[in-house]
Nucleic acid binder design. Structure first.
Lengths: 334, 334
DNA sequence: TTGTAGGCGTTATCAA
DNA sequence: TTGATAACGCCTACAA
């Protein structure tokens, strides 16, 4: 393996001079610079980042931890964050985790590796934070999930109000004349997001005096097409419904496919409501009626809060971002 | 920052003993092991991977370089690779690049950082390989694009035969009675994949004696919904067609949405054919008629070739994986 | 402008 | 079973 030592030897200069050239510093003679760069190019030399980072104490890096590699909402947020970060002097590093991994533990590892100035969590399990976040001393923002119940001075959050948003979704279905409503959502013992959204649903039913039969009308699924597809079929076999609320657009699409395969028309026979407002929602057929999370705002505020956190060392804040009901074509007025 | 030195001091043992415990080695007294593990747990100590990697010469790591973060086919392949790798003793590292980045340059950096045993490229620009791959000495496999024209002894490839596959697509459209066909694909000056697929189309037209008017019937787009959506609208304004071949399923969906928004029915008025066979294709409405790339086989062979490359040091091979035509609901028999 | 030397956190070697 | 010590490749005072 080629090292700067080799380059130094070959060029006749010392390692420090080589290092200076490599880091584009100006206290090098143009002569030395030229010669060293030539040799570097010739050998296609690339410095070893491990050694670099090991030594560098401040790295000006911000790490994004994305929970769930196939979450389309997160993909959009990541893109947005990347675009914003390019305007700053920070370097961004994106780290993808499985939906079920412990993001806090992963964060600890990443902190050691990268020594980042800040952390951005895309999605997170509140329980993991309670248990392990104390060991993380880097300014962090939890994006997409609320963190006000977690009292860490270095942890802020920006999220959509899941309770209000799903309440709005059910309210809308009810306003369109639906009363027999099924729900497809995550595991209520594991997914904090799902719990919140379910609470909103219940609240809406309560306010309208509609009775909700959790046992027959709530179907658990992972946040994927096929899982929701199967959940929809189970739901149909247990309950008679005129509308379904799916806790993500991906789930909604799985559900719609199941309905169509069973010969139902959407929305003529059964209406389907999604959640997230991903790009695909408006390209799907029918266009999805959904709750749109403002991913751009989530991304922007997440970054802004983190940077002010880092630079001004101010206190943790917890923000809520407004949501919008998008009327597509997947819900029918009864 | 906590280091093993601190742990050593606190436990009363030396750094070497702590290191041994951390690496689960057996030449440590259970007494020492217990005590050290306790302290590690108490402080939530996590070793610094940079230092670790800096020291370790062999890393048993394999790196996957994914070109384009929103390519759904690649996501599926990555998942597949991850599953396979868990059966082996290798560690996997996934590195995402932008669609336009130079993957070979990135590979060089990654090699220094990680010192991997092998490299898996998901997508790649043949030109970048020609120019820079000579400096990479690690066994590598280019997945999804053919590499037989690149004569590097450490570079194998597995890919779908893009020429034959798109020829098959057009043949199918023709067999269904379509003659006035439009194409939506990538930039023919930049995307190697698009060039190959276009060649297949031309070949099919030639064989059937159909004249193809590239100027009016080929529309360039990025591999995204909205770009294809706009391309479809441009296409309609220039040519009268009964069918469209989109070079990816994502593009096909963008095109279908454009058609529907303009009042056309798919496939009744205009047929649309996709490419890739992503999961979404069978959940979309109408189900996409498409060329399915065997992502599982691509992943499996990619891994197998790489491992035999590493372990047996045998020569580079270049394989082609069969494809299938999936008859969905988006193409009509005229 | 350049070079020397020490250290970043870890693992490996060797001796005790 | 342990511990001291020398690397790993790079950066950065500080000295020249």
């Amino acid at each position: 393996m080629l090292t700067i030592k080799d380059i130094a030897k070959e060029s006749g200069y010392s390692v420090s001079t080589v290092s200076r050239v490599l880091n584009h510093r100006r206290d090098v003679s143009s002569e030395a610079k030229k010669k060293i760069e030539e040799i570097v190019k010739m050998h296609h030399f690339v410095p070893n980042n491990n050694a670099k980072r090991l030594k560098q104490i401040t790295s000006k890096t911000i790490v994004v931890l994305v929970k769930g590699t196939s979450n389309m909402l997160f993909s959009s947020i990541v893109e947005e964050i990347q675009a914003m970060m390019e305007q700053t002097s920070y370097t961004l590093k994106v780290s993808y985790l499985d939906e079920d991994d412990n993001e806090v533990r992963q964060a600890a590892v990443v902190c050691r590796e990268t020594n980042p100035m800040g952390l951005l969590f895309l999605g997170g399990n509140v329980e993991y934070f309670e248990r392990g976040f104390a060991e993380i001393h880097v300014p962090s923002v939890l994006v997409t999930d609320p963190g006000m119940d977690l009292h860490f001075s270095n942890l802020s959050s920006v999220a959509t109000d899941d309770v209000a948003a799903s309440q709005c979704a059910i309210d809308y279905l009810i306003s369109q004349g639906h009363e027999k409503i099924g729900i497809i959502g995550g595991d209520l013992r594991l997914s904090y997001t799902s719990i919140q959204r379910y609470r909103g649903c219940i609240e809406s039913f309560r306010a309208s005096g509609i009775e909700f039969d959790e046992k027959n009308c709530y179907e658990k699924a992972r946040f994927s097409y096929d899982s929701a597809y199967r959940a929809m079929k189970r739901l149909l076999s247990k309950a008679e419904i005129t509308a379904v609320f799916a806790m993500s657009d991906v789930m909604a699409i799985g559900a719609i496919r199941a309905l169509r395969d069973l010969g139902y028309l959407v929305p003529e026979d059964i209406s389907v409501m999604g959640f997230d407002g991903i790009t695909l929602a408006e390209y799907y057929n029918p266009k999805l009626t959904t709750i749109q999370q403002q991913y751009k705002t989530l991304a922007a505020r997440g970054v802004e809060i983190l940077l002010s956190h880092i630079e001004l060392k101010n206190r943790a804040v917890h923000e809520t971002v407004p949501f919008h009901l998008i009327e597509g074509e997947s819900v029918k007025h009864m």
